[in-house]
């Protein structure tokens, strides 16, 4: 078995001359909870639609379970083994909750009745209500219920917590963690809620303008980033050329703030070599790293 459940290499896609993806590379390790981040329009939903065979790539390659996503037959096999929540969270408005469950179940041979019952209770979904009459939050929960009951090996969730209240978000994250911990389900999800990604993800990818600019384990990412805070005794007369790794330098009078993406040790040494400078370093959270990357480009 492959170590990576999803492998995307050089994926390229444009719509009427508008580039959505330009050579995207992403690898999702089996068993991981993978946060897929990017600003609106960075190409997240396009990537997910390509993975599901809803769109077809212009160039590049993507495989799930080792199967090519752009092959029609393989795509059906892939879809049998995944659970999907779309960005829109829209289901057939004329069906009731009960009907859409009965409609969906036969498509998935590994369907989990136990999980279906559990989520029905947890999410408090009214079986007889028409989907057209559900609130957005309820539709999101219903879509999650359907996707998470597939008995899937991989969940592909496009902004799963969108439209949910904080308590529901916590419930959903807990259930996702439980699926990951006890069933070994791999979870690939996009989100704008960086705090929730930081809470449950162990791998992240940040994409911008259709390219992955970060893709590694969250621990490694946070280990290599530091914010340095340097205070000089006298304001330096000439601007300092910082060693590589200093991503974002902000100087105000005698104090300098540096966001370092690597090479922290050398930067600290460099700062210390300036007479009368005191250096402090702080860990950086995902939010700062994200903002640094998508603003820098």
């Amino acid at each position: 078995m492959n170590d990576f459940l999803v492998e995307i290499a050089g994926l390229t896609k444009s719509f009427r001359g508008q580039t959505a993806l330009s050579g995207l590379d992403v690898k999702v390790p089996a068993g991981s909870i993978f946060g897929f981040l990017g600003r609106n329009g960075a190409g997240k939903t396009t990537t997910i639609k390509l993975l599901l065979g809803i769109l077809k790539p212009d160039a590049g390659r993507a495989t799930i379970f080792g199967l090519p996503v752009s092959d029609l037959r393989a795509s059906i096999e892939i879809r049998r083994r995944i659970g999907f929540v779309s960005e829109e969270k829209e289901l057939y408005p004329y069906m009731t909750v009960d009907q859409i469950i009965r409609f969906t179940r036969p498509f998935f041979p590994a369907w989990r009745d136990d999980l279906e019952q559990r989520y029905l209770k947890l999410f408090e979904l009214p079986l007889k209500r028409k989907i057209a009459d559900l609130s957005k939050g309820m539709r999101s929960k219903l879509m999650l219920l359907l996707a998470m009951s597939h008995g899937a090996e991989l969940l592909i969730l496009d902004e799963p917590s969108d439209g949910l209240d904080p308590a529901a978000v916590e419930d959903v994250l807990r259930e996702l963690v439980a699926l990951s911990a006890s069933e070994g389900v791999t979870i690939f999800f996009s989100s704008h809620q960086l705090s929730e990604v930081e809470q449950v993800a162990d791998y992240v990818s940040i994409i911008d303008h259709g390219k992955a600019i970060v893709g590694e384990s969250l621990d490694d990412l946070k280990a290599r980033y530091r914010r340095l805070h340097i205070v000089f005794e006298n304001e330096p007369r000439t601007p300092i050329r910082w060693a590589p790794g200093a991503e974002h330098v902000r100087q105000e009078g005698r104090s300098v703030s540096i966001l370092a993406s690597r090479n922290v040790e050398e930067l600290v040494e460099q700062a210390r070599s300036i007479p009368g400078a005191s250096v402090e370093q702080f860990p950086v959270n995902l939010r700062e790293i994200f903002l640094e990357h998508v603003r820098g480009n």
Binding site: L52, G53, I54, R79, S86, E88, E90
Partner: peptide, 22 residues
């Protein structure tokens, strides 16, 4: 739409496309 126009028709197309059928 079975009757009158309903909201959510467009987005639910993605649900159909995500099912494991051709």
């Amino acid at each position: 739409s079975p009757f009158a126009a309903m909201k959510g028709l467009h987005g639910s197309t993605y649900y159909t496309l995500s099912l494991p059928v051709s």
